[in-house]
Nucleic acid binder design. Structure first.
Length: 243
RNA sequence: GCUGCAGUUUAUUU
């Protein structure tokens, strides 16, 4: 019960509330387990308290518990969300040295972390290493790569990556298309973005409110407000209401 | 003690 409450408190942005609750509960003799620490690590990272979060890892050991894969993944994700992908990579090495096998969460998180800070090359390096270890790229991996390539202005390669994902049997999703649509429109390729919005339907992916918002944003930024209106009416006629 | 279950980690818009 406490763990569930702590998780909710942390997600609402209040690690301190969680810690207060933890103290109360400790006084009643309820002992935290590894889940508790994992939740707190996530909460601390969300607040940007990375040093506290990494210290939590030591706390775990002091409490006689052993960090598990989720503990490492949580910390790695927290570091990545705070633009610290290379620090996160250090923990990848630490966990391997501690005898843990990184899983798809681990690899995808670090790959995403590097893509988000514009270091697609580093992401690629991790990916190649991961594939060598038997990792199979999934929709998360491809999404991050597409995002990263687009941010780097390499929309052509981003499109190649989507095609590659398709060829490898990845079930293409609205999210993957949205990611590429965003990249195309942010790189001035609004026509290609519109075309992709049409193509995605042939592949069974129905544009959602995110898709339309991306397209509308792209059109408006290019000054094509009347085209944006047309698209918006199209969305409304399909039952997708502006939010 | 055993069995089951539950709670924690990764991708897209403004």
């Amino acid at each position: 019960t406490f763990n569930k409450l702590a998780s909710i408190l942390c997600k609402n942005g209040g690690v301190q509330d969680s810690e207060r609750l933890l103290n109360k509960v400790l006084k009643r003799g309820v002992l935290p387990n590894l889940f508790t620490f994992n939740i707190l690590i996530r909460g601390l990272c969300r607040k940007g308290l990375l040093d506290e979060a990494t210290r939590m890892l030591d706390c775990v050991t002091k409490e006689g518990l052993t960090p598990d894969l989720v503990t490492f993944n949580t910390l790695i994700a927290g570091l990545c969300k705070n633009s610290k992908a290379s620090e996160a990579e250090q923990y990848l090495h630490k966990m391997v040295n501690s005898g843990f096998e990184p899983d798809s969460f681990t690899y995808n998180t670090i790959i995403d972390g590097y893509c988000k800070i514009g270091l697609v090359e580093n992401a690629d390096k991790i990916l190649n290493h991961a594939v060598f270890k038997g990792f199979v790229p999934d929709k998360f991996t491809y999404c991050s790569l597409i995002y990263g390539l687009c941010e780097a202005g390499d929309t052509d390669r981003a499109m190649d990556v989507l095609n590659e994902a398709c060829k490898k049997g990845i079930q293409l999703s609205v999210i993957l298309f949205n990611t590429l649509i965003r990249g195309l429109s942010q790189n001035g390729r609004i026509m290609d973005a519109l075309q992709l919005m049409n193509e995605m339907q042939e592949k069974g992916c129905i544009p959602d409110i995110w898709t339309y918002n991306l397209i509308l944003n792209g059109l408006c930024k290019m000054g094509c407000v009347s085209d944006a209106k047309t698209v918006m009416n199209d969305a409304i006629s399909k039952g997708i209401l502006p939010d």
